[in-house]
Design a binder for these strands. Structure first.
Lengths: 137, 137, 137, 137
DNA sequence: GTGGTCTAGACCACG
DNA sequence: GTGGTCTAGACCACC
């Protein structure tokens, strides 16, 4: 559970936590049913306020990724069902388009961009069907 | 200069303006040397606060995309040189990675994601040989 | 005494126990004078903490529904007298009102809501003439 | 915008705000497009912390009932679409069942319970098609 | 021990 | 002016 937080980033800390937990789960470094550090543990590990961790956990629960059992703690859900929210997909497409625009202004070649995308997709998606390919990043 | 602004979007309006101007330039709907509407014109066209337009123009100037000539107006720069800022590239890579993660939780297939990326890359890069001319800085 | 507990529910487990015992009594699946499982038995049956069962029993006793005889065990009271606590009635009305509001936002038809209410009322009140016998306190 | 908050209630204050705003909208005391008091105004009106109001507004936005425009304020959405979430409907049914059980222990007659339900349904639902019936509580 | 709520007060970005 | 985020510290309910 070593998360990389950047307090200077414009992305709120709680959202950085959300993102990185989601990444850890996809990479199977956090397994279904596994217990997350308690809010207090996490906050002292990351040197952030417990409320910030709490907000991150609540958001993850709202997204159907983790669950909290009263008095027990917080756990990764057994079955994380991808829900194909059309609005979110459209937002993602827009974000992707914007990234492409930015990459052009940064002088990034098309091939590089696609290569990166493929590499990230393999890195994560590999875990779903074949675990051995998840480490060849 | 018909921009699509969404006041409900969580992306700041000034940033939406910046993004769409950059897109228009890439698509050659705004040509080098062309004059942009004045801050007042733009703000009344888009029904937004002049300060917002001003902030967008300042950001575009900061990024080396447009220039303001006092008393003359604001113009698209003749040569927009992609500056390969390593930090920005790394940030873009992170953003791309995050998009890939989100797409996984939305149940989007790898092929779809790559297809979209390719389509956007072609859409922009196709109109101009921006990639080849990116080294003549 | 097969209770359906959901550790994921936001209703505290002790309260779920209280609710379901009250339901069993109304449905005459638990009869007046009948002995409840001991705290230990119940906790091992339900795989929950004995303290949780204990809290549920205390609450049921506080509500005048069961009684604990030292050394003998815990029993359903012979005569459960509905006590028309005005405050609780008002709270119930508020809760009902809130349910109606929620049902509206969920797009539930008035008829459906009333049908459900009637069905539940019949389900419970039908088995016993609780309403008529409610005045013999 | 006179809300009745009960700090002693077990329902969190932010949730009480959410509930009552939803009620005001159903009763057409808050109209689509109307501006809600700012977070600061509301917090000073209700004598609660701005963060508490903020949490309530965020929840209302998450439920698709209001929207916030950056720097402008918070507004009731034009079209509030009831979304028939099956899980939430089932939870509502359970809550209704529980209310029926409670009403029995409080000695409430079936007819009273149904009468109340009908009255609340008419009070709110009346606003949808005929405004004149909304005041005959 | 666990998470949830509330307060107070500060800082920031947006328009 | 608006809302959003973060911190610090307190209190509570649950198990």
């Amino acid at each position: 559970m070593l998360l990389n937080l950047d307090p200077r980033s414009h992305i709120p800390i709680w959202e950085q936590v959300v993102n990185q937990v989601k990444e850890l789960i996809l990479k199977e470094l956090l397994l279904p049913g596994e217990k997350l550090p308690s809010v207090r543990e996490m906050s002292s590990m990351l040197l952030i306020n417990p409320n910030t961790v709490s907000k991150a956990y609540q958001e993850l629960e709202r997204q159907g990724i983790i669950e909290t059992l009263r008095g027990k703690g917080t756990f990764v859900l057994q079955s994380i069902v991808p829900k194909a929210d059309e609005q979110k997909i459209e937002a993602l497409r827009q974000a992707l388009k914007q990234l492409v625009i930015e990459s052009s202004y940064l002088g990034i070649e098309k091939e590089s961009f696609l290569k990166w995308a493929e590499s990230y997709l393999k890195e994560l998606g590999g875990g779903t069907d074949c675990a051995e390919s998840s480490s060849d990043s």
